[in-house]
Design a protein around this nucleic acid. Structure first.
Ligand SMILES: [Mn+2]
Ligand SMILES: [Mn+2]
Ligand SMILES: [Zn+2]
Ligand SMILES: [Zn+2]
Lengths: 132, 132
DNA sequence: CAAGTAGTTTAGAACGATTTTAAAGTAAAA
DNA sequence: TTTTACTTTAAAATCGTTCTAAACTACTTG
């Protein structure tokens, strides 16, 4: 499936700007990035785009499940092209995130989901620190 | 140990403002809160404090380990008075966090920590969703 | 205690990330 | 083709947070 089809399937009009972003993000390579990172990649690819459009697109892509947003206490939003359920190592010093594939983690015991709720995904974060 | 001693032990001068905050936060009840939530509690207690001071104190308290900051993709920082290693349920719709005690979760398999790094804490996040 | 000094608080300005505005442009539908 | 709904954009606005610099306060030293 090409990117135009992916956008259509997600219910998004394949505009010029969304195609530029899809060509960068949906190339099968997993990455963690900010809106500013993406704008730099867009510029490097010989295109340009308003930062408002970049935010608009990222929000649409995320809401359609084409990308994810990472839980992060940094003040800049971090997005993730790996949309499979997976986990992360986090170096809190640098903010670097490293993917952990889902089958690298195995839970022996999980708490009871609160009354009236459904389990909607489990994420494990392993904080790591450079050895001195 | 009273709050004045706790602050001293943490290397912080027990100023009037820090004592007001400590009296609210270090009462043994676990809670998740924002800077604005805390300012409202301070106001309700008949005191008042500059938002700059509240941020200063929260940062100091966090860096001393008196409170933690939660990883969250919301744009407002969320703090946690539960400083034990523990986990969370997250209702992504509302942002509500519910504590999961550490012994409610058991990991059968953990990935190898990257070369040159040390494990600095594991956090499990269980996203939950209201049943329709 | 008194004086010195290092740390703290504050209002307000500044900042950086993100969202809104509103007008012009474009894709899809009719 | 005409109409419609959606999208992009620059610029302004907003919002959470940090900075500035002056006033204040806790602690140290004499
Ligand atoms: Mn922020
Ligand atoms: Mn965040
Ligand atoms: Zn990832
Ligand atoms: Zn908690």
């Amino acid at each position: 499936m090409n990117n135009k089809e992916k956008l259509r399937k997600a219910g998004l009009r394949p505009t010029k700007q969304r195609m530029i972003i899809a060509d960068i993000l949906l190339d099968g390579i997993n990455r963690h990035f900010t809106a500013e990172n993406l704008q730099n990649e867009i510029n490097s690819s010989g295109n340009s785009m308003s930062i408002a459009t970049i935010y608009n697109c990222l929000k649409k892509f995320r809401n359609c499940g084409l990308i994810k947003q990472v839980e992060s206490s940094k003040d800049t939003a971090i997005f993730d092209t790996n949309i499979n359920q997976h986990h992360h190592f986090l170096d809190e010093e640098t903010g670097e995130l490293i993917d952990i594939e889902n089958d690298e983690v195995n839970l022996r015991k999980l708490p009871k989901i609160p009354q009236g709720y459904l389990n909607n995904g489990v994420e494990v974060l392993i904080k790591i620190k450079k050895k001195i």
